[in-house]
C-alpha cells in the first residue's frame, strides 16, 4: 500500500484550497505531479487509484488525465530522464546530432532506459527554449546550448549525484 507522507498530504490540502469548494478535481494535475515524484517517477495503476481516493474521484477520471499529458510516465523510467527537444528550431541548431550522440554514449534509443536504471532518453516536442537550442529538460531544469562536451558533463554530474545519494 502506498501513502503520501503527512507533509505531502498537507501540501495537497493547500493545493485543493486554491480552487472553489467542490472543485477539488482541479487539483488533479498538480497532485499527479507530486504522486509521480513520490512514487518512483511514474504513475502505476496503484498510484493512480490512490490519487483517485485522495481527491475523491473515480479511477477513470485519473486514468484519462494521466494518459493525456506527456509529462506523466506510464511505465517505469530511469532515475535521470534526458528529454531532448527534436522540433524544427532545435533542428536548425543541430539537435539531430545531439540525440545521436546521447544514443551512442548511453547505448539506448529514445524511449529506452539504461541497464543500470540510471538514464532514460526521451525525444520531446518544443519546450519553449528555441533561442537557446539545442536543449533538453532534466528534472525541473533546462539544459541549453547543448554540445557533446556539455552532454558528457551532464552525464558525469548525474552519475556523481547518484553515487552521492546511494
Amino acid at each position: 500500500m502506498i501513502k503520501f507522507s503527512e507533509q505531502k498530504l498537507k501540501e495537497i490540502e493547500q493545493i485543493i484550497s486554491h480552487y472553489p469548494e467542490g472543485k477539488q478535481k482541479s487539483a488533479l494535475l498538480p497532485v499527479l505531479h507530486i504522486a509521480q515524484q513520490e512514487f518512483g517517477g511514474w504513475l502505476s495503476v496503484e498510484t493512480m487509484d490512490y490519487v483517485a481516493t485522495v481527491l475523491n474521484l473515480l479511477p477513470i477520471e485519473v486514468y484519462e488525465v494521466a494518459t493525456f499529458y506527456s509529462m506523466y510516465n506510464l511505465k517505469p523510467v530511469g532515475r535521470y530522464i534526458f528529454e531532448v527537444c527534436q522540433t524544427g528550431p532545435c533542428i536548425t541548431k543541430g539537435s539531430d546530432n545531439i540525440i545521436k550522440y546521447i544514443e551512442e554514449k548511453l547505448g539506448i534509443k529514445p524511449g529506452e532506459t539504461t541497464a543500470d536504471g540510471l538514464f532514460t532518453l526521451k525525444t520531446v516536442e518544443c519546450l519553449g527554449a528555441c533561442g537557446y537550442a539545442p536543449m533538453m529538460q532534466l528534472g525541473k531544469s533546462y539544459r541549453e546550448h547543448l554540445t557533446k562536451e556539455k552532454v558528457n558533463a551532464i552525464i558525469e554530474e548525474c552519475r556523481m549525484n547518484a553515487e552521492k545519494n546511494n
Binding site: 486554491h18 482541479s26 494535475l29 498538480p30 499527479l32 505531479h33 493525456f68 499529458y69 506527456s70 509529462m71 506523466y72 516536442e125 518544443c126
Partner: peptide
C-alpha cells in the same frame, strides 16, 4: 492569484 501547472500538452 494561484499558479496552476499543466503537464505537457500544447
Amino acid at each position: 492569484i494561484f499558479v496552476h501547472p499543466g503537464a505537457g500538452a500544447y
